[in-house]
Design a protein around this nucleic acid. Structure first.
Lengths: 150, 150
DNA sequence: ACTACTTCGTTCAATATTGAACCAATGGAG
DNA sequence: CTCCATTGGTTCAATATTGAACGAAGTAGT
């Protein structure tokens, strides 16, 4: 493939990805219960997916590629909703530990249930096989972009 | 593939896509000249890519999946920079016509030149072939999400 | 021990976006 | 023609995010 064409293809693919990301986030936001933002849902999901018990705000900020300030904001929301509990880190007085509460786990479960119908409609139109086929590529691109971010 | 697994795969793929979109937008923003936002660049690019001569703000808003208010904001910026000219539509007094200026076309060209090096570094690590292979899938997903957005 | 960096979390102004309200102009139904 | 619903664009408050500055706490070199 010519360099010129390769550039155009990559640019177009990233453009499509950016648009899909936008549409998916919007759709997700609509499905979420009131007061729970996409960013907040991401945090709840992170705890469940990784089965992790407690994490510091800074580690969360890094995991989600947002600034510490943005994470402070998101966590304050989640704490106000009672979905996480935030305590001091006994090992490091600068740091804090964020923990998922029962209510947080329930909220995440409920949000998932509200998201699945839309996802199933999508799977009617785009076979699951294609998502599975694209996944390794997507993960690779994410890793590369992630590593390049300095 | 089991329904359960299909849901998980699709959800994960969309998550990755959302993250990549975020990272790509951030990288793009860094490469853009001062004062030109990602949204503004998108508009300039739209005119060049589609070789279109003039479009109404509402059509642009629809093309980019943003509200009319957001497009008003972006266009005011672009006009202030001299990258587009906005005139009344002689055929419909409610409407306006947005046109790319020479300066706008130059700015788009310059922005592209600043973006390509990063894109080439990415193509060193992820073969262009894989972008090309993923493109039809991405376009399909975008179309489906787009159509579902009501 | 001191000093100088580094890290953790918060705060604040600035930016970009949405949703809703609004006004003016258009167009279709009777 | 006259209404009335629809469309195009702007404005505004609210939300989410960034980048920069900050203070407090840890860490390493000497």
């Amino acid at each position: 493939m010519k360099r010129e064409e390769a550039l155009r293809t990559a640019f177009q693919a990233l453009s499509e990805i950016s648009i899909i990301g936008h549409l998916a986030d919007t759709a997700l936001a609509q499905a979420l219960p009131d007061g729970l933002s996409v960013a907040g849902f991401g945090v709840l999901n992170h705890f469940v997916r990784l089965g992790v018990e407690g994490e510091s705000p800074t580690k969360l900020a890094r995991a989600f590629q947002v600034t510490k300030g943005a994470m402070t904001y998101t966590l304050q929301q989640l704490e106000a909703l009672g979905y996480v509990r935030i305590s001091a880190d006994p090992a490091d007085a600068r740091s804090k530990i964020v923990r998922l509460t029962k209510a947080g786990a329930r909220a995440r479960e409920a949000a998932m249930a509200r998201v699945f119908p839309g996802l199933l409609r999508m799977l009617d139109l785009v076979p699951a096989k294609e998502f599975a086929a694209a996944l390794p590529f997507l993960i690779r691109v994410r890793q590369v972009l992630d590593a390049a971010r300095d």
